[in-house]
Design a binder for these strands. Structure first.
Length: 418
RNA sequence: CGGGCUGUAGCGCAGCUUGGAAGCGCACUGGCUUUGGGUGCCAGGGGUCGCGGGUUCAAAUCCCGCCAGCCCGACCA
């Protein structure tokens, strides 16, 4: 694999395929997310969904196809998105009277229904979220970072006034996104507001969390927008106030996508491959049984028993029992795939009642006792999670400019991955 | 859309200059061997050589046209 230092972009491109996260989709810029990659998404999803619900939001689902006229209701919104829309013009063997847009984001269709569902101040705030796929015809796709179709959640809320809407905007940014990034993905993100030129089309204010990638460039890893009354005016989201007067609601929207996976790869990965934070790793511990012939059965049985005990302790464990592959091959394979901890279990270990533990970031291998393995590994995983965050924080601090240079920073973001 | 590059087995590539039986490595299948850092050997399977046309006794190779993909930019609200 190309080393990061030689060509970071090539390193990334090769890694996502070699680690079996993705394959190329048939249409340009699309991606097939393979099981190992999709598991990463599921783990992000589970964590985010929990936080979204804990903060009072409810999940709903709106249609993939949006009438073209909806997009045109908000002038800046349509202008911003027009170049990257996929449009359905024919269906059922006929040309459609009104073309349908494959959603690039759902403000418009959700706005339409919020207008229908909101009539009183008692209906506010309305706190919705949807898990969905969206399509944006980007000129230069990159796996996870900017694909034609991607998966995300989009929160959409409506509030009585600016203060409440801004509270929501910051709640999504800080309590939901920044915490997910830091606590789950071990990404020491910076929260900030985008410049007017970088604002979401139709938004009054746009905030993001920005991660620091190992090539020293920033990645926008989550966005939260305060829309003011722009969409409320375009879609007639109005409510009767306590005094009976009609008032436009203030809306927000916020999203985090499969791009987050790209962020994790570029925040922690090294020349040997992925480095996954334990809380996000599909397999936190992989057991490589060593030995064949007479010993094989015994070793495999011991590995399975150990895996069972670890699973019982809540540790995601995998036994690599592929018989045709050598241990050395498996070691490299699981390092490439970013598994935090590896246990080597052979006849020598069994005799001694131990297993050899190796950490993904290297250092000396260490024998640990089989009896105490679940507790020991749980501790090791916690320590590994913390170490990754510290390491990434140190790297970020070396590469981040001061707030005085914020303009330059956002400029760097704009010309970087974001 | 501009600049560069590439289309030959699942993947990575050689062959093209100078036309003459479609190859190599990895992967895959079967067998044996081997297993504490990317095992070794033997035998196999797999191809509209991107597409269309032309030249020729003969085209992966030469000529014309088209298409697709990748990389670097522009775009990324």
């Amino acid at each position: 694999m190309t080393p990061q230092s030689e060509d970071f972009s090539a390193w990334y491109n090769e890694l996502v395929f070699k680690a079996e996260l993705v394959d190329r989709g048939p249409a340009k810029g699309t991606m097939v997310i393979r099981p190992y990659g999709y598991r990463l998404w599921e783990l992000i999803q589970a964590d985010l969904d929990r936080r979204i619900k804990e903060t009072g939001h409810q999940n709903a689902y709106f249609p993939l196809l949006i009438p073209q006229s909806y997009l045109q209701r908000e002038a800046e919104h349509v202008e911003g998105f027009a170049p990257e829309l996929a449009v359905v013009t024919h269906a059922g063997g006929k040309q459609l009277e009104e073309p349908l847009i494959v959603r690039p984001t759902s403000e418009t269709v959700i706005g339409e229904f919020m207008a229908k569902w909101i009539s009183s101040h008692r209906d506010l705030p309305m706190l919705l979220n949807q898990w969905a796929n969206v399509v944006r015809w980007e000129l230069r796709p990159r796996m996870f970072l900017r694909t034609t179709e991607f998966l995300w959640q989009e929160g959409h809320t409506a509030h009585a006034d600016e203060a409440d809407a801004m509270r929501e905007t910051m709640l999504a940014l800080d309590t939901i996104y920044a915490r997910t990034a830091r606590e789950l993905a071990a990404m020491p993100v910076i929260e900030g507001e985008k410049t007017p030129g970088e604002r979401f089309a139709g938004a009054a204010r746009t905030f993001t969390i920005e991660g620091m990638m190992r090539d020293g460039r920033a990645l926008q890893a989550g966005t939260s927008h305060y829309m003011g009354t722009n969409f409320a005016r375009a879609f007639n989201i109005q409510y009767a106030g306590e005094d009976g007067s009609l008032i436009h609601a203030h809306t927000t929207s916020w999203g985090m996508s499969t791009r987050m996976i790209g962020g994790v790869i570029m925040t922690h990965g090294d020349d040997k491959g992925l480095v996954l934070p334990p809380r996000l790793a599909p397999y936190q511990v992989v057991i490589v049984p060593i030995g064949r012939g007479d010993q094989a059965g015994e070793v495999l049985a011991a590995a399975a028993a150990l895996a069972q005990r670890l699973a019982g302790a809540g540790i995601r464990t995998h036994v690599d029992d592929r018989p045709q592959l050598s241990p050395g091959f498996k070691f490299n394979d699981w390092e490439l795939r970013g598994v935090p901890l590896r246990l080597e279990l052979g006849p020598r270990d069994l005799a001694a009642g131990t297993a050899v533990m190796a950490r993904r970031l290297g250092g000396p291998k260490e024998p640990i006792s089989l009896d105490g393995a679940p507790a020991r590994l749980a501790d090791e995983l916690e320590a590994f999670q913390a170490l990754l965050f510290e390491r990434a924080t140190a790297f970020r601090d070396e590469h981040t400019v001061t707030t005085d240079e914020w303009d330059d920073f956002t400029k760097a973001v704009a010309t970087g991955w974001a």
